[in-house]
């Protein structure tokens, strides 16, 4: 008898979770962020429900500030999968023109992503939403359950959460409550990359290193994705070979300098450098004043 590899087991577990949700909830949806974890989750959904397309739509909560390459990729993906793509943009955010530059990342994310998601869930009446979060992303996620119960106001109440034993998931809920389900809970970053590599899953080209126009902002390399990016007077972006470890709103997502333009190279780089995924900072860039000082001190 053969043994299953760890990826085969993880895959089977995720498929099992997805099928449980479809069997026991009324109106599920898959949150699609266009990133690599979403790509894996979508691929798993395809496998879980084949030969038919997955019986739920994709929901992209758009902040309007994603990389252009993400929008193109998203639309192609939905078409190919034969799934409905719902794109929700917080209308109040549009009215007030909420953006990362004027309002800062905290407000922008809060209004466009967090509030936007709640609006979309309410609007369509979804009672279960698949998300691509993993337990190894942050230390605080180690204790997260696969099924996370939310009140009608989308709040998380510790009294509502259930222990998860064996392969049993208690999906019962009251009217108005909803569940967030994380089928990738036991996958690590390396598992995700290995799976993408082995299964040849298409991902947004921004994950691969290429020469791209970037400017420096507070020690991070930000890509000049379109002409909305405010440049300082006289600023000329440089073309640098960079790639992205996570994809989000382009003004808030730092690139890293890299030569890794193939999947094995990306994996190699990831294994060798191994800093946490959410940190996208480049080496600190001192202000010109302190450098002048250093010059005068004869340090240089």
């Amino acid at each position: 008898m053969t043994a299953l590899t760890h990826l085969q087991k993880l895959e089977a577990e995720s498929i099992h979770i997805m099928r449980e949700v479809v069997a026991e909830t009324e109106n599920p949806v898959m949150l699609y962020s266009v990133g690599k974890d979403s790509a894996v989750m979508l691929h798993l959904a395809r496998k879980a429900f084949a030969p038919a397309p997955p019986p739920f739509p994709l929901l992209h909560v758009d902040t309007r500030w994603k990389f252009r390459a993400m929008y193109t990729f998203r639309d192609n993906m939905a078409r190919e999968m034969g799934m409905d793509l719902l794109v929700h943009i917080n209308p109040e955010g549009v009215e007030k023109d909420i953006n990362p530059f004027t309002h800062g990342s905290a407000i922008h994310t809060d209004v466009m992503k967090t509030e936007g998601l709640k609006q979309a869930l309410n609007q369509y009446g979804f009672d279960a939403a698949f998300g691509g979060a993993r337990r190894d992303e942050e230390k605080s996620r180690a204790k997260e359950r696969v099924f996370s119960f939310r009140t009608a106001q989308h709040r998380w109440d510790p009294k509502n959460q259930r222990p998860e034993l064996w392969k049993l998931y208690n999906t019962r809920k009251h009217k108005g409550e909803s569940i967030r389900v994380f089928p990738l809970s036991n996958w690590t970053e390396l598992d995700i990359w290995q799976y993408i590599y082995l299964q040849d899953i298409p991902i947004v080209p921004l994950y691969y290193a290429a020469e791209r126009p970037v400017v420096e902002r507070d020690g991070a390399l930000i890509m000049v994705d379109d002409d909305r990016m405010p440049l300082k007077p006289g600023e000329v972006p440089m073309m640098r070979k960079v790639r992205f470890r996570t994809l989000g709103c382009y003004p808030l997502t730092g690139a890293i300098e890299s030569q890794a333009d193939t999947l094995p190279a990306i994996i190699q780089e990831m294994l060798l450098t191994r800093t946490s995924e959410r940190q996208g900072r480049v080496i600190d860039h001192d202000s010109a004043a302190s450098m002048e000082k250093k010059k005068q001190e004869g340090y240089f």
């Binding site: 126009p213 000049v224 002409d227 440049l231 006289g234 600023e235 000329v236 972006p237 440089m238 073309m239 640098r240």
Partner: peptide
């Protein structure tokens, strides 16, 4: 010239 994104500079 390589390495610069001059398109973004109206002055240039």
């Amino acid at each position: 010239f390589q390495g610069a994104y001059f398109q973004a500079s109206p002055e240039i």
